[in-house]
Computed example of a mutant assay.
Amino acid sequence: MMRIDDFTLENWLNPACDSEKNKYYLGGSCVLPMTVEELFDLTGESMENFFEELKHMNLGYPRFEGTPRTRKALSKLYKNVEPDEVILCHGGTGANATVCYALIESTDNIISIMPNYQQFYSIPRSIGAELREVDLKIKDGYKLDLSEVRAAADKNTKAILFTNPNNPTGSVLSLEEMRELVEIAKSVDAWIICDEMYRGLDEEYMPSFADLYDKAIVTASSSKIYSMAGTRVGWIICHDAETRKRLFNWRSYDSICGGIFDEWIFAIALDHVDKIFERSRKIVNANKAVIDKWIEKNPYLHQYADAHGTTYLVHYDLDVPAEKFCDDLLDQKGVLVCHGDCFYIPHTFRITLSHAHELEEGLRRIDEYIDELVAQGKAIKN
């Protein structure tokens, strides 16, 4: 029987979110969700027409390959993608799982750039593939040493898997770094598999690996910067027709197709994606300014990455394990942040730049908690 690791992040964070103690939720990664009413106010679409169409919606299976309107709109998020190169899935996790199970075999080795989303190392390991980890350099701003990737790659390397912007740090590869990584992959005929869930928060166009490499497969979803996690629309971009057949085949075993309502309402957002991005940037940038000032004033906190996503990974100089730090913070102060052990980075926590209820009060309570730990002699002298 195939065994897979406990999904640390989801198994810890989701129950914590549901806890009655969770009064100040600062642990999420999705930009503040929209209501249906807000979506229509933002886009200028007619809600009356929407509900009239809803009355007559056929609730049978949608098209297997996905709603044409949605696939066309998604293809426009990239420079070199056609609608038939878009595969719709059930959420971003569905997209990532489909790619891993369809492509990776036990005889392969894969390179996982850490920190990473757990699907991109635990699923390959459960299949029996050899896992080769390359760590981002913390004090360099969570930058990638491409020479380490080159040294890890060989003729049996099936794929290089990572997130860009990175989850949880928000660091990004420059276009030059992306091109160099493509050359490394080409040299061993490996796939680049990139989770781009947080792509799109920059004012200027953020390059995608789908723009740069025929053997790139990228995934994304409606969850993070689109503020519509409940619609459960994920997608895979794949240029190679034969590989798309394999991906569709695996998805048939998993979910068959997407949800007709989900794809339909998400297409409305995509038709006005500039307005969605503008809203997300405004929310993230406002919260980022508050959190930057907060970290700057606290001598026990550090944030190293030039973050382009919706979260920071904050390092703390306190002799308390990350999970205990966050458990006690929730228990004692009602503040929920995500512990860094979920990403195998001790003495850290992930904090949202986006979905934050009463942000400043939550930050004040974290300061209060840290002051109490310092008074107990928990401070680490550097």
Rank of each mutant, 00 (worst) to 15 (best):
K79R: 13
L301C: 10
Y213F: 11
E10C: 01
D274R: 02
H315S: 12
E82K: 11
L175R: 13
M114I: 07
F40D: 03
T35I: 02
V172H: 07
T67M: 13
H308Q: 12
E65H: 02
D135L: 08
G66C: 11
V172A: 15
S106K: 15
Y300L: 14
R125K: 13
L26W: 03
Y304F: 15
E130A: 11
A289K: 14
T43L: 03
C194N: 15
R71H: 04
R350G: 12
A151M: 01
R3D: 14
F266V: 04
I276C: 09
L181H: 10
R71G: 06
D6V: 13
W235D: 11
D195Q: 08
M34G: 00
Y226F: 14
T8H: 10
L173Y: 09
A95W: 01
L13P: 00
E38R: 04
E368M: 02
G258T: 04
I217Q: 04
D341S: 14
D274E: 15
D214S: 14
I160Y: 00
H315N: 07
D108Q: 10
H355K: 15
L39S: 08
V36I: 10
D189R: 08
M228T: 14
Y312S: 12
G28E: 12
A129M: 06
L161I: 03
T231A: 08
E204R: 11
A102E: 09
A153H: 03
Y369F: 15
L161M: 08
E204W: 00
I160V: 06
N58K: 12
E263A: 01
V284E: 12
R150G: 01
L9E: 13
T107L: 02
S171Y: 07
Y117E: 14
N22T: 09
D189Q: 08
L77K: 08
I265G: 04
G170Q: 05
F349M: 11
C257N: 05
A159H: 03
D341L: 10
K275L: 06
L88V: 14
K215Y: 01
V335N: 09
P321K: 03
R279I: 00
E38M: 06
G91Y: 01
L318V: 00
R246H: 05
F266H: 08
K324R: 10
N285T: 05
E242D: 14
K137L: 13
K288F: 01
Y226H: 15
I217C: 06
L201Q: 11
D254Y: 04
Y121Q: 07
A356E: 09
P115E: 14
S221C: 14
D327F: 02
I256T: 09
F266Q: 08
W250V: 04
E45N: 04
D319Y: 00
L54Y: 11
C89F: 01
A356W: 01
E242M: 06
E176L: 07
E323P: 00
K245Q: 10
D202A: 15
C89D: 04
R350V: 11
N11R: 10
Y205N: 06
I291F: 09
L336E: 13
K72N: 11
I123V: 11
G44Y: 00
K155T: 08
P321H: 02
Q376D: 09
G309W: 03
L88K: 05
N249L: 07
D189A: 07
T311M: 11
D145R: 02
R199W: 01
T311F: 01
S280E: 05
H315Q: 06
R179K: 15
S29F: 13
I111T: 06
N382Q: 08
K297G: 07
S112A: 15
E45S: 11
